[in-house]
Every structure is written in C-alpha cells, then in structure tokens.
C-alpha cells in the first residue's frame, strides 16, 4: 500500500488555476523527484504536502489518513535557505528537532529536554551530526558554516524529528557543483540507510535522475497567453528510474548484536531485483 496518496488535487488562486487533477501514489521508501519548468506549481504542490497551503479540491492522505491542515512532525522539510536557526549551534539545531517534540510538563512549558532524556537526545544528535560529516563543527553557529555544511545541518535537523516523509525544496540549488556532488552522495546514503520516504523539488534534471527512484514532471498542457491561467499544470511524465534503485532493507544495516548468530551472507543484493511493490 502506498504511503502518500494524492487524489484529484486542484489548486486555484482567484481566477488562476495552478495545478489541476493531480493524482499520485508514493510508496514507502520511495525517492521522488518533482521536476518541471519554473512556475509550473511544483513548489505549490510541495507546500500542499506540507500543509503550508491547502488544496482547493481533492485530498492528500498519508498512511491512509488525511493530512493535518497545519505542518506537523510527520513531514520534515529542508528548504534552499533559512532551514536552520541562526541563534543555535550545530548541536543545538539538531537537538531542537527532538526538544520541540518533548512531552510532559517541562517539555510543553520550556520546549527543552532535561536529565537522562536530554543525554539520550544529545547522543542521538551527535550520531546524526557524524552521519552528515559535521562532527568537527558541533559548536559553530550556522553563519560560520559554508552553504553545503548548512544544508547538511538542515538534513540532520530534519532527520532528528523522525518524519515519515522528508520534503526537500530545491535543497541543493544554491550550492557549487563540487559541493553538490558530495551532498548527493550523502543524500543517497541517508536514503539507503534510513526508513525515509523523500519528495524533492528540483529544477536540475541530472540531479533528479541521479538521486531519485522516480521522476515526475509537472507541466501545463495548454499554456497560450489567451488562456489567462484557465488551465493549470498537471503531471505529464512519470518515470521510474531503471535499473531500479532499491534501498537496503533496514535490518540488514544494523550491526549484529553480541549474542546474535554470525550472519552467513549479506542479506541484500546490489543488483536489481523486482520485488512486489517496492519502487
């Protein structure tokens, strides 16, 4: 069964139709890239997935339940800019992803963690910071980081919130090609190793094809000046990348416990295997 289900979604502003008749099913652990010319509504679509905007018609469901009308912790996001908080250090930024979810009276009142819970979150934050390669910069502020490092930090922070779906809005668009290639490797590893379903908006086609399991193009079928916005964009292409990219099964990545039997073989294959619903 698919994780995200978009049924007959339209988005209109006053007289202008931005998106029409969007139908989309996104599987668990898919990596979907949304591409299209600028102004075709792909960012609007992402905003609707995030509940920053509401569809004019149609429904968006995650796990078969309609999404909340406001942004919630089940959907994480990384923007091209302003994704991290300039008043917090690297560690503080990542930690915030857990602290803001803290329950109990102290968490609700102060938005902070205390004692053992905090120590646990700090350990987890350090692990994520290491995973994105920022361990040496733990106590720096975002203004002291390069653009690529800031986006790595934004990824770690979003992952700390344990979202079901990670939404990326042209996250690497402002980076130099070299840095971008590095962060692509990181992105692919993160996707491979964690239970992540990713929807990424990008205007960079090579990036879309390099990272995604599925590339979806938004386009206006009719775009005559005389139409005056009466026709919106819709999905015109829906490629699955071939050979299929299949993420590693999560349990294969956990190091075996001390008392576990020694694994006989690697439990997943590199080569494309067609498995049921995996995209």
């Amino acid at each position: 069964m698919s994780l995200i289900s978009v049924r007959n979604v339209w988005k209109e502003y006053d007289d202008t139709v931005v998106l029409e008749q969007i139908n989309l099913e996104i599987d668990q652990r898919a990596f979907v890239a949304l591409v299209g010319p600028s102004g075709c509504g792909k960012t609007t679509f992402l905003k609707m997935l995030l509940s920053e905007e509401q569809p004019t018609r149609g429904t968006i469901k995650i796990d078969d339940a309609p999404i909340s009308p406001e942004p919630t912790a089940d959907r994480g996001v990384v923007y091209q800019r302003y994704s991290v908080f300039s008043h917090l250090t690297v560690l503080g930024n990542v930690l915030l992803g857990r602290e803001l979810q803290a329950g109990g009276p102290a968490g609700t009142l102060f938005g902070r963690l205390f004692g053992a819970e905090k120590a646990l979150a700090v350990a987890e934050a350090r692990e994520l910071i290491a995973a994105v390669g920022l361990s040496h910069a733990e106590s720096r502020y975002p203004a002291q980081l390069s653009g690529g490092m800031q986006q790595r930090l934004a990824l770690a922070q979003a992952l700390m919130g344990r979202p079901k779906v990670l939404l990326l809005d042209e996250p690497f668009g402002a980076l130099d090609p070299g840095i971008r290639a590095e962060i692509h490797v990181l992105m692919r590893n993160l996707w491979n190793e964690r239970a992540l379903t990713i929807v990424m908006v990008t205007h960079d086609l090579p990036e879309a094809f390099a990272l995604a399991t599925r590339v979806i193009a938004f386009e206006r079928r009719r775009n005559e000046p005389t139409d005056c916005g009466r026709y919106g964009a819709t999905i015109t292409q829906d490629f699955e990348i071939w050979p299929r990219r299949i993420p590693a099964p999560l349990d294969s990545l956990k190091p075996p416990g001390r008392d576990d039997p020694t694994p006989q073989t690697v439990s997943y294959r590199d080569d494309p295997v067609k498995t049921g619903s995996a995209a």
Binding site: L50, E52, E70, P71, T72, A73, R75, G76, V77, Y79, R81, Y82, S83, F85, S86, H87, L88, L96, G97, E99, L100, Q101, T108, F110, G111, R112, Q157, A158, M160, G161, P163
Partner: peptide, 24 residues
C-alpha cells in the same frame, strides 16, 4: 520557512515563541 520548519519539528505556538522567535 523557519516558522514552518519549527512546526515540522513538532513545536507548539508557545515553544515557537520561546525557542525560535524570542532568542532571535
């Protein structure tokens, strides 16, 4: 973006005011 981001990290109106807006 920062306000939306804080919401996706699970913040309430109060914790956004306290942890995101006030210090900035």
């Amino acid at each position: 973006q920062q306000i939306v981001k804080a919401q996706t990290l699970g913040a309430s109106s109060w914790t956004i005011a306290l942890r995101v807006i006030l210090p900035q």
